Simulated assay, not measured.
Amino acid sequence: MVRTIVVRVVCSFLVWLSLYSASWYQNKHRTPEWSDRFVTLIHGLIVTFLSGYVALIDGPWPLTHPGHPNTTAQINLLCLSLGYFIFDFGWCVHYNSEDELMLYHHILSIFGMGGVLLLGESGSEVNAIIFVSEITNPLLQIRWFLRDTGHYHSIAGDVVDALFVLLFLGLRIIGGVWIVDAVLNSSKPNWEVKAGVLIMYLVSIVFTWDICSFARKKLMSKYYSWRNERNRGEHSSSNGHVLAH
């Protein structure tokens, strides 16, 4: 069983590496980050769909079945995502593109998914964490591509930012509380799984501080922009009124 899991993870890693290499070959005029972001976007879309299907349709329900044996669907999803995180961690280290918090997040994800695969249980709660974590990732990558192409300061950029903040706070923070509560109050998951789930949630809390700061700055920027436009409009109207007399 362990050998099969290792083979699947290695195959997953090679798939993501091949996708990155193909993208880099086709887009040599762009930076390596462009291709890495492209791979991250594809991973986020695929894994969000699959983890949502596993959690909501295939089952078992993560809030009522933490610590239960892994299903075939959960194993396949974890192998697919683990291969990606190994690839992306290596890329981030090679290009020194991320801060320590993001690297720690990758390390926790790698050890968490790898441990659950070797343990053979707790796939339901880890799958749920993948879902609430990765559902915002495509939006983050789309935001980067909008910036890279000069289309970020538009309605599309505002919609992407709003959806990202709402989904992050609604699913990763509020939904994450339910997952953590279900795992900690269940007698089935071992203490390593419980500690890992709690640590991952604490990392999300740290990210929340940055996201809330970003949301506040953007809202204030929009407010000042609107107020300046309004003041200019009132000034123009006043000038027109004076000139009319």
Rank of each mutant, 00 (worst) to 15 (best):
S186L: 02
P138D: 10
L171G: 07
L41G: 04
G115W: 03
V165K: 02
K222T: 11
K28L: 14
C11Q: 15
N190M: 01
G112E: 08
G196V: 01
G123S: 02
E229T: 09
V159E: 06
T72W: 08
W16F: 13
I110F: 06
R172K: 07
G90L: 12
V197K: 01
D99V: 01
G150L: 12
E134G: 12
Q74I: 01
I5E: 14
I5H: 07
V206Q: 09
V203T: 05
F168A: 00
G196D: 04
S186I: 01
S124N: 08
L184E: 05
D161R: 05
V15H: 10
L163P: 01
I57V: 14
P69L: 02
L146Q: 13
K217D: 15
L119D: 10
I86D: 11
V242G: 07
L118H: 05
F164E: 00
S124H: 05
L63M: 11
T71A: 05
R3K: 13
K217I: 07
L169W: 06
I179L: 10
H68W: 15
I46T: 14
L56Y: 11
P62C: 10
Y224N: 15
H105N: 05
V2Y: 13
E33P: 08
L101V: 02
A182F: 00
G120A: 01
G233W: 04
R232Q: 15
G44C: 06
R227F: 09
V126E: 08
E100H: 06
L169Y: 02
L171T: 03
L219Q: 08
N137Y: 04
R8M: 13
D88N: 04
G196M: 04
S18V: 08
F85G: 08
F49Q: 12
T71N: 09
W178K: 00
L169A: 05
L184T: 00
F38V: 01
Q74W: 04
L63C: 06
V126P: 03
A55I: 06
L166F: 11
L163W: 08
F85Y: 13
R147V: 09
A55D: 11
H151G: 14
C92P: 02
N190C: 01
K194W: 00
L108Q: 12
A244I: 09
L17T: 14
L103A: 03
S236A: 15
W16D: 13
T136L: 05
S97I: 03
L146N: 13
G233I: 03
V47C: 14
L243K: 14
S35K: 01
C212M: 14
E33Y: 10
S23G: 12
